[in-house]
């Protein structure tokens, strides 16, 4: 294994993130603060608590997931697409780096960045909303799984994209709508039954449901369902991303 090569790629991804800090690190933090103030504190004061906590406290883990999903997908898809587009990816492709190292490097870089953002938001939650994860193990596990899931999807779409605009298709038409109806803002128990049932088809619902459990200790469908669903989706997307890079899809002519 080329561990130095792998570490070099991870370092490179972190370096890139900090060079575009105003595009990728501050926005999720600031927009989360805005959600907390406008929806959580201002409007939320008129909503009675859900899952035994105040609305703002209920909202926070959903907001963390929202930023993790968006950030992880955005990081790996745009980084990989740019590397393909500028041919910089060839620096790695001519070197003794395996598909496994390349995929792991991109995913790990992306997980690191989202982990950082998530923790900043978590700390803001402690300071502003007095809410703290009750299960740290689950908090970390779900964060890592979901970040890995969406950065794997980012690799898949970063490889398929023919132009930068293609990357936004998944965000605009799938991720954003599914996040909004996936339980960030409400428990499915408050939705009409038909809509609640439809939510069970929404993959993002399970990520938010599992993550919120690490805060509230409660879940809409039960951790025994949501956590394995998230893990299975992560393994599947990672495997697809790996198979594509291994085959040299759109990387080696």
């Amino acid at each position: 294994m080329n561990s130095v090569g792998l570490w070099t790629l991870i370092k490179r991804e972190m370096k890139r993130s900090f060079q575009i800090i105003n595009q990728v690190i501050w926005p999720p933090i600031i927009s989360t603060l805005l959600y907390v103030f406008v929806f959580g504190l201002a409007l939320g004061s008129r909503i009675k608590g859900i899952q035994g906590v105040s609305y703002a406290q209920f909202l926070l883990p959903g907001l963390v997931m929202m930023q993790v999903i968006d950030g992880a997908y955005g990081e790996s898809s745009s980084s990989l697409f740019q590397a393909r587009f500028t041919y910089a990816i060839q620096e790695m492709l001519v070197a003794p780096m395996s598909a496994g190292e390349i995929v792991f490097g991109y995913v790990f870089g992306s997980v690191l960045r989202t982990f950082l953002i998530a923790n900043v938001i978590m700390v803001l939650g402690v300071l502003l909303l007095h809410t703290t994860p009750t299960s740290w193990g689950l908090y970390v596990a779900v964060l890592v799984l979901v970040a890995a899931l969406f950065s794997s999807l980012g690799i898949i779409f970063g490889l398929m994209a023919e132009k930068y605009d293609n990357i936004a298709v998944l965000t605009t038409f799938a991720i954003t709508p599914l996040v909004f109806v996936g339980g960030v803002f409400t428990s499915i128990h408050l939705l009409p039954p038909v809509v609640a049932h439809l939510s069970l088809l929404n993959p993002i619902f399970y990520t938010i449901d599992a993550f919120r459990y690490s805060y509230t200790g409660q879940s809409d469908v039960g951790l025994a369902i949501s956590l394995p669903v998230v893990a299975a989706m992560t393994v599947a997307s990672y495997a697809i991303a790996y198979a594509m890079v291994r085959a040299g899809y759109k990387l080696r002519t």
């Binding site: 490179r12 500028t86 910089a88 620096e91 070197a95």
Partner: peptide, 19 residues
């Protein structure tokens, strides 16, 4: 096919790293 996020000297270090 240079990495646009890196400076000249860094390009050499990172390329060596991939090796």
């Amino acid at each position: 096919n240079f990495d646009r996020y890196l400076r000249v000297r860094e390009i050499l270090f990172y390329q060596a790293g991939y090796y």
